[in-house]
Every structure is written in structure tokens, then in C-alpha cells.
Computed example of a mutant assay.
Amino acid sequence: MKLSGAVEQACCIMAILADPQRKAPITNDALAEKMLVSPTYLKKISRKLVVAKLITSTQGAVGGFILAREMGQVTLHDVVLAIEGEAPFFQPQGIVERVFASRSRQVEIGMTMIEKVFSEAQEKWNEYLKTVTLADVVKEVMHG
């Protein structure tokens, strides 16, 4: 499985907003400049984080983004879910059924097993990501 680069950018946004020295909200343009990425693409990422209620957007002259929750209340699963959504790892396209049409019973058994294995793997992966908060990551970085 491959996560999009948007997940890394989302983690960076969260880390920037979690900086204890930051006293004011930060704009999308300032984030893009700091991260050296496209402001247009970053808007899409920050919007997903707002919709997921991980960050809050404030309006006005001193507007920008702030954390919506404490870092200890945000898991890596939350960030991945906000950016990538809940689509399963494995999404059959029906190719196996077309290629092995004459063996429909064997294909059904095999596909059931494959789907079960990927589903269980995704469940374990999600459960593990839920055990790691952004506060854990920040703590590790500060002591590493």
C-alpha cells in the first residue's frame, strides 16, 4: 500500500500548528511557504483537516489555522483517515473472474480468502495507527 504525499503534508501542518511557541493562527500561504509546496494543493489538504475537525479555520485579519484538538487527542489514524478516506486496501476489479471464468467456484473461494486477508490486515493497520498520537511523535522528535 502506498499513502499519498498529502498524508506527510498533513502531518507537517499538524506539527507546525502544534509548535508551543506559535501564538497566532497561521495562513495557508504561510504554511505553503514554510513547507515549500503548492498553496493550491495545500488548500485541499487543509480543507480535509478542517472537515475532519483536526484543525480549525479562523477568519479575519489575524485568521488562519489552529489545532482543533490537543495533539494527544489526534492519532495517526485520524490524519490518514482525513486525507485518504476509508476506502479498503483491496478493491477487486473483477479481473480474476473474467480471466478464470470457467473456474467460478475456485475463483469465489480464492477471492473470498484474499478479501478476508486484506480486510484483516487493514483492520490491524488501523488499530495500530490509533495507538500513536501526534503528541507521541512530537515527544519522540524532541527527545531524539
Rank of each mutant, 00 (worst) to 15 (best):
A18V: 04
T58V: 07
T112H: 09
L42K: 07
V62P: 00
G110Q: 03
A6R: 15
L129V: 05
G63C: 04
A30V: 11
A30S: 14
P39T: 10
V7M: 04
E8S: 13
P92V: 10
L49G: 02
S38L: 07
E33P: 00
L31Y: 07
Q91D: 06
Q122G: 07
A15E: 14
K139T: 13
Q91I: 11
G85K: 12
M35F: 08
K124W: 08
I26Q: 13
K48H: 11
A121R: 04
A52V: 03
A24Q: 14
T40V: 14
E70D: 12
C12M: 12
S102E: 12
G64S: 10
V50L: 07
C12R: 15
K53S: 12
E108H: 06
A18K: 08
L54D: 02
W125H: 10
G94W: 03
G144W: 01
A15D: 11
G72Y: 08
K43S: 15
V107R: 03
A135Y: 01
E70C: 14
V96D: 00
A87F: 09
G110D: 07
E97T: 09
S102C: 05
M1R: 14
G144M: 04
K34P: 00
K23E: 11
T133C: 02
M71L: 11
G72I: 10
F90C: 04
V51E: 13
K124E: 10
N126M: 05
Y41G: 14
V62G: 11
E108P: 01
V141L: 11
M71N: 06
S4V: 06
V107G: 02
A10T: 05
M14K: 00
F90W: 13
D19G: 04
V37Y: 00
I83M: 06
E140T: 12
R22N: 07
I83R: 06
G85V: 11
Y128H: 09
G72V: 08
G144Q: 03
D136W: 00
F89M: 11
E33I: 05
E140V: 05
G5H: 09
P39D: 09
L3W: 13
S46G: 02
G64C: 03
T56K: 15
E108R: 11
P25V: 05
P25F: 03
Q73K: 14
H77N: 09
L17G: 01
A10N: 08
I114C: 05
E86K: 15
W125V: 01
M111H: 03
